[in-house]
């Protein structure tokens, strides 16, 4: 075996079966630039936000906005004296401006997190890192989302 192994674990949990809700519609409800700004200020407060240090990797052309791979990396030595405390990710046009907050520290070793997100349309994604000296650094990326040509509808 290589150093990586797979652990297949079963979890107990009261989860309803997925896929049983009839097809539904998303009403045109969107975060506004003001809501995005408020969401960011809720995290950052009045502190200045500098551009740099943060990188967001999203495929150049997203094949489906319902599941978009995203990796956020911050340039940091991740030492006790100089590390990333948190990473906050926001979007411009989903119904709600927040995507996720990640809390890490020197025991992370590397300031990089990856997840899969939903993006309702082509839009801007903003990632902000809070460093151990309480400075904030950000990057904004434009993401192009392919819309499905045929959607599943009831007819």
């Amino acid at each position: 075996m290589p150093t990586t192994r797979r652990q297949f674990l079963s979890l107990a949990g009261g989860v309803t079966a997925a896929g049983t809700i009839p097809i539904v519609t998303l009403r045109p409800l969107r975060a506004t630039p003001a809501m995005l700004n408020t969401a960011i200020r809720n995290v950052v407060g009045e502190a200045p936000i500098r551009t740099g240090k943060v990188k967001v990797d999203i495929p150049p052309l997203v094949e489906n906005g319902n599941t978009v791979p995203m990796t956020v990396t911050v340039a940091s030595p991740m030492t006790a004296d100089d590390h990333v405390k948190s990473i906050h990710v926001f979007n411009e046009k989903n119904p709600q401006p927040n995507i996720a907050n990640f809390y890490l520290g020197p025991s992370s070793g590397r300031a990089q997190v990856a997840t899969r997100i939903r993006l309702a349309d082509t839009q801007k994604v903003v990632a902000i890192a809070r460093l151990s000296d309480d400075t904030f650094w950000q990057v904004a990326v434009d993401v192009v989302v392919t819309l499905a040509a045929c959607t599943e509808e009831m007819n």
């Binding site: 997925a18 896929g19 094949e63 319902n66 599941t67 959607t151």
Partner: peptide, 9 residues
């Protein structure tokens, strides 16, 4: 697993 469906189908 279809990303569109976000589930198996």
């Amino acid at each position: 697993y279809r990303l569109e469906w976000q589930t198996l189908g």
